[in-house]
Each structure stands twice: as C-alpha cells, then as structure tokens.
Amino acid sequence: MAEENKGVETTGHKWDDEEGYPLQEWNNPLPSWWLYSFYACIVIAIVWWILYPAWPLANSATKGVLGWDMKSELQKELREASAKRKPLDDQILNMSLTDVKKDVELYNYAIKGGQFIFGENCAACHGRGGVNSVDGFPTLSDDDWLYGGDLETIATTIAEGRQGVMPAKGGAELSDSQVNDLVSYVMSLSGAGAGPGNATAGDKLFHSDDAMCYTCHGVGAKGSLKGKTPDGEEIDNSIGAPNLSDGIWLYGGTEDAIKTTISKGRNGHMPVWSSDNGGKLSPVEVKKVALYVQSLGGGM
C-alpha cells in the first residue's frame, strides 16, 4: 500500500483506492539533459531540412541549399574509383593474359576484380567460387574442361559464349535396347555400375558408324579435348564433348540421367558476355573474369 502524498503534484491518476491509500502517478519533470537533447535534435532536424534534400514533392524532393544528393555523390565516387583503376585496366587490356599472370601485382588486382564480376554475373549458374551442384552448369573449380582451360580459351568462352548440343540418340535411329547398351558402356567406363544393357555391345555401337558417338567423344570416350578419331586425328575442340571416362558428369552420372542424356539429348547454353558481341562485360572485364576462373581450377 502507498500512502497518499498531499505535497507532491500528481497527474490525477489513482489506483487501488479501496483502503484510502491509492497508488498515484507523480508529475515529475523530465531530466534537463533529456530535454536539451530533445530540443537539440529538433534544431538539427530543421538545419538538415534546409541544407539537404528532405521534403518530398510530387515527383522529386527539395534540393536543399547545398545542392547535395546521394545519386550525384555516388556517381562522383564511381568516377573517382574508375579514374584510379584506369591505369591498371589499360595495362590489362593491352597485355596478353599470360603476361598479366606473370605480373604479380597486376594479376592480384585482376583476379580480385574478376571475383567481384563473377559473383555479380556468373555465380547464379556456376555457384560461388565456381563450386556448383546443379546439373547442367559446369563446376569451374576443378581442372575438367569442356572447351579448354587455357586462359585464351576461357576468355573466348566468356566473350563469345558456347552452345553445347547432344542430339537425341546421337542423331541416329537407335532402339531402346541399343540405348540401354550405350548406357551400360558409358557407366562401365567410370565404374558407375553394370547398367541396364550389354556394355560390350554398347562399346561396339559407340565406335560404329551407326551411332557415331566416337566422332564427338573420341575413341574410348575421352572427350573432344583428349580423344581422337579411329584414324588418330584430333577432334575439333569447339565441339565441347565431355570426357565420359573420368566420373565427372555435367547432367548426372546415374543410370536414369545417362539414359535421359542419350535418348532425349541435351542442349547447354553459355551466353555471350563481351560487350563487343552484344554482352554486358567490357573487354577488360572479360579478361579479369578469365584470370579469376582459371585461378579456381588451375586450367591446363
């Protein structure tokens, strides 16, 4: 219980007055420091309204007597940053990728820039750091390449894009039994299991002129980068046919995934990125990304 205090000003609020000793809300003044701080905030707000953009208008806002705005400030900072980068960017643009890599300071600058550009534009498909777990998008953190892992080839891939096409049933008239034989052969190459068909028959079909799988994947299914034709000729690297014997899969290495790839085909698309070809990256940005991507997996 609280005894009513007649000598202290209250707000008039009372509770629990059954026995004549109510709880009362005293009308204590606010601390001076709090009041001064509050008044100072009001003054600062008024000054801010006068100096900077603050009051919204129909399609804009007041400009403020200083004429400052965030967009102009950002553009100024971007111009200053661009001016600082320009000498280094000019060097990268005018040097070969191999020479850039030999210059430690320039190389470190390039791959840091490439990492940022990659994160903004490439990571959605290839994953952060090039480590991807989604079928159909190559992992870039290993040394397994479809078109080549040297710097110039990577730059070409980024700048010009790629179109990887696996025709349904290899473009041939294959029966379901023949597809199963090919699945078994492909699975046997990497020790993935027995498969649904006859691997020996699949080997023969793979290297025959009926299926003609060897024309892209090469003898032994080593891929267009490492494989050769039965005559020992090199395969065109621009085909981008994967190595089927290394256990690294673009669309999955299960029986069902391999069967789908053979029977229904695949169509992989790497978009054009260079502004020279209609993309959104400048030539120097393409070089930076190429250097960064190769740094992830070593290239070849």
Rank of each mutant, 00 (worst) to 15 (best):
Thr153Glu: 13
Ala155Lys: 08
Thr156Arg: 13
Thr156Phe: 13
Thr157Ser: 14
Thr157Met: 15
Ile158Leu: 09
Ile158Pro: 06
Ala159Leu: 08
Glu160Leu: 07
Glu160Arg: 13
Glu160Lys: 08
Gly161Leu: 07
Arg162Ser: 13
Gln163Met: 09
Gly164Glu: 11
Gly164His: 11
Met166Val: 09
Met166Leu: 08
Pro167Leu: 12
Pro167Ser: 05
Lys169His: 01
Lys169Pro: 01
Gly170Val: 02
Gly171Met: 00
Ala172Pro: 01
Glu173Gly: 00
Glu173Ala: 08
Leu174Ser: 05
Leu174Pro: 01
Leu174Trp: 03
Asp176Trp: 02
Gln178Ser: 01
Val179His: 03
Val179Lys: 03
Asp181Arg: 05
Asp181Leu: 02
Asp181Glu: 05
Asp181Trp: 07
Val183Glu: 00
Val183Ser: 01
Val183Tyr: 03
Tyr185Gln: 02
Val186Gly: 01
Val186Leu: 03
Met187Gly: 04
Ser188Cys: 04
Ser188Lys: 05
Leu189Tyr: 02
Leu189Arg: 07
Ser190Ala: 14
Ala192Leu: 13
Ala194Met: 10
Ala194Trp: 02
Gly195Gln: 05
Pro196Ser: 12
Gly197Pro: 03
Gly197His: 00
Asn198Phe: 00
Ala201Leu: 13
Gly202Tyr: 05
Gly202Met: 05
Asp203Arg: 15
Asp203Ala: 15
Lys204Gly: 04
Lys204Pro: 08
Lys204Val: 12
Phe206Ala: 07
His207Gln: 00
Ser208Gln: 00
Asp209Asn: 15
Asp209Thr: 12
Asp209Tyr: 09
Asp210Glu: 10
Asp210Val: 14
Ala211Asp: 11
Ala211Trp: 04
Ala211Phe: 09
Met212Phe: 14
Met212Asp: 15
Met212Cys: 14
Cys213Met: 09
Cys213Phe: 11
Tyr214Ser: 09
Tyr214Leu: 05
Tyr214Phe: 11
Thr215Lys: 15
Cys216Gln: 14
Gly218Asn: 10
Val219Cys: 05
Val219Met: 13
Val219Pro: 05
Val219Leu: 13
Ala221Gln: 14
Lys222Leu: 15
Lys222Asp: 13
Gly223Ser: 03
Gly223Lys: 02
Gly223Ile: 04
Ser224Asp: 01
Leu225Gly: 14
Lys226Gln: 13
Lys226Gly: 10
Lys228Tyr: 03
Lys228Met: 08
Pro230Val: 07
Pro230Asp: 09
Pro230Tyr: 09
Asp231His: 14
Asp231Lys: 15
Asp231Met: 15
Gly232Asp: 01
Glu233Ser: 07
Glu234Met: 14
Glu234Phe: 11
Ile235Tyr: 05
Ile235Asp: 07
Asp236Val: 06
Asp236Lys: 04
Asp236Asn: 12
Asp236Glu: 12
Asn237Val: 11
Ala241Phe: 03
Ala241Arg: 01
Pro242Met: 11
Asn243Ile: 00
Leu244Lys: 08
Leu244Ser: 09
Leu244Asp: 08
Leu244Tyr: 08
Leu244Asn: 10
Leu244Ala: 10
Leu244Glu: 09
Ser245Trp: 06
